[in-house]
Structure formats: C-alpha cells, structure tokens
C-alpha cells in the first residue's frame, strides 16, 4: 500500500481529482451547472435513458392491466358518472356558450397554442434526490430548444428549461422556487406572482403572492399566466386556487395553487420554442378597471394591481 502512494497511478488519480475540482470551480464561477465532460457523457447516454423509458412504460402498462385493474375499473366508473353529469349540465347551452365566449380570450389553450412553435419531448430521467420533481427531456439545442423556453402539457404550465445540451435538456418545474411567473386569477383579474415554495412543494402546491387583502379570490378559481416578465406567454393555465391565506406581514394575501399539470408523473411535454409576446392582462385589464372605476363599481385601491418591481422573473 505504501508503494501505491509513490506510484504513477496515485499521481494520475490526484491529477484527476484536481481536474474534477477544476470543473466544479469552473461551473460554479460561470453560473452553469454542467461542464463539457458531463455534457458529453449525457449526450452519449440519452439512448440508454430512452430505452429505460420504454422498458418502464411497458412495465407500467403491464402493472395497470394486471395488479391495478380494480383501480382502473373504479376510475372508469367514476369518469362515466362525471361524463353523465357534464352532459346534464350542457342542457343550458345558451348560458354556457355566452360564458365560454367570455373566457375564451383568457383560457382557450388551443387558440393560444396555434400561435406557438411547439416541440414535443419525452421525459427520460428523474433523479431520486430531486425535491421539486425536475426532470430531463430528450430534446436539446439541435431541436431548437433554448434556456428559459417554457415547458407545458395539455393541462397547463409544467416549468421552464434550465440548461440545454445538444440532444437533451434539464427542466425546472413550476414547484421550484427558482421558477416564478406573472399570474392572474381569471374570474377576478387579481394579479400576483406565482412561484414555487419549498414547504408547499412537498404537497405539490405552489404559491401566488402579492394579492391584495381585498381580493375576492375563492377556492376553485382558475389561475393563468399574464405574460408579464417576458418568459411565460400569457393565457397559459397555471392551476386552481385551493386556499387564500394572509402573508406573515399581514399587508397582502397569498393563494395556495394546485397546479394543473401533474409534474410528478408527467411523461411527455411540449416546449414552446417561439411565440408572439402578448400580455392579455396589461392593457385590457387596466382599461376595464378604469371604466368600472369611473362608473363607481370598483374601489380605487383595487384599480392598481401590479406585480411589485423586481419580483417578476
């Protein structure tokens, strides 16, 4: 063993250790998580991750067909009952149509998506130690994906791209405190900042801060992005309000939001690689609120609902 410490092999190991420390320092000093050897390894391992996803997909399907068949049948019955209930509610067609016309400008994902350039991607890796359910996707710079591109699912916002390599990218979910977006409650038009919060993330919830104390937000209200900040386009569904609680300062309120997209189990996503910026809630909300103010229907202190400067992403 003593001879080992004087051998060439030991010197090579020390050199490699110093090299790793150098990569660590370089990555940290340049504000990046990854360095060249890491990216090369990851690029080479993407096929393995795809293979793993295929295998786990097959096992999951087999599990659902055999072991979880009772749950599947029960879910099927529950969905049938809900479908019948929804059909009964469709009887009042005229009222529903009018309400739908009003909501379409803010919530219609299909109309909004038609203006976006989308890239589909599969989730190919998740780390067991990851607290906020961040994941790796099988699209990278060769597919047009860039850092800060928004990641969505048919249900709503999933997160944003944190780092990109040639054929893979890392995505931070909206539960991560590093991800924040301008958001608005669709029904009341109260504007706030939706961001991840470590305590709420354990229950897969996020926080919408800076709501005024007089906000008339209620549980079940839909929350959408405003487009303020320039990263997240407007009109994307963030989630639904679960609870309204006062901030510790007592000066404002915050809402606990149940995200629309299930970031824990999601297996495929869309990345918005390009879109026409449009802040739905900036001009129209200000105009409508001003009109209501002059008619004396809105208290003055709710007229100015803006996200505090420096708090947007």
């Amino acid at each position: 063993m003593k001879n080992f410490f004087t051998s060439v092999k030991f010197k090579v190991l020390v050199f490699l250790l110093v090299l790793m420390a150098g990569f660590l320092a370089y990555a940290g000093a340049n504000g990046r998580w990854s360095a060249a050897p890491q990216e090369l390894l990851a690029t080479a391992l993407v096929p393995f991750q795809r293979l793993g996803r295929m295998i786990s997909g097959g096992i999951e399907a087999m599990y659902e067909r055999t072991v979880a068949i009772d749950e599947v049948l029960a879910e099927n019955e529950a969905l049938k009952e809900e479908l019948n209930r929804l059909r009964r509610e469709m009887v009042d067609y005229d009222d529903m149509k009018a309400e739908n016309e009003l909501f379409r400008a803010y919530y219609n994902i299909r109309d909004t998506y038609s203006d976006y350039e989308l890239v589909t991607a599969f989730v190919i890796g998740r780390d067991p130690l990851e607290k906020y359910y961040s994941f790796t996707i099988d699209r990278g710079s060769r597919d047009g994906v860039a850092v800060d591109d928004v990641v969505i699912s048919p249900e709503g916002v999933v997160g944003r791209v944190a780092s990109v390599s040639y054929n893979y990218a890392e995505v931070l979910t909206l539960l991560d405190p590093a991800v924040s977006m301008g958001a608005a409650v669709g029904r009341t038009r109260d504007i706030g900042l939706a961001e991840g919060e470590s305590m709420l993330a354990q229950e897969t919830r996020l926080k919408m801060s800076y709501l005024p104390r007089e906000a008339r937000v209620a549980a079940g209200d839909l929350v959408v992005t405003t487009g303020l900040g320039g990263v997240f386009p407007s009109g994307l569904v963030v989630g639904t309000v679960e609870d309204m609680l006062p901030e510790s300062s007592g000066k404002s309120m915050y809402a606990v939001i149940n995200p629309a997209a299930d970031v824990r189990t999601i297996t495929s996503v869309f990345i918005i690689t390009d879109y026409e910026p449009d802040t739905v809630f900036s001009a129209s909300a200000a105009e409508d609120t001003a009109a209501e103010e002059s008619a004396g229907t809105v208290p003055e202190d709710t007229a100015q609902q803006t996200v505090p400067a420096g708090e947007e992403e």
Binding site: F23, L24, A27, R32, W33, P37, G125, D127, E170
Partner: peptide, 8 residues
C-alpha cells in the same frame, strides 16, 4: 448529469 448539481 442526472441531478441538478454542480459538475464534478
């Protein structure tokens, strides 16, 4: 690579 940790 698989975790969001600093390289190395």
């Amino acid at each position: 690579v698989s975790s969001n940790r600093l390289a190395g």
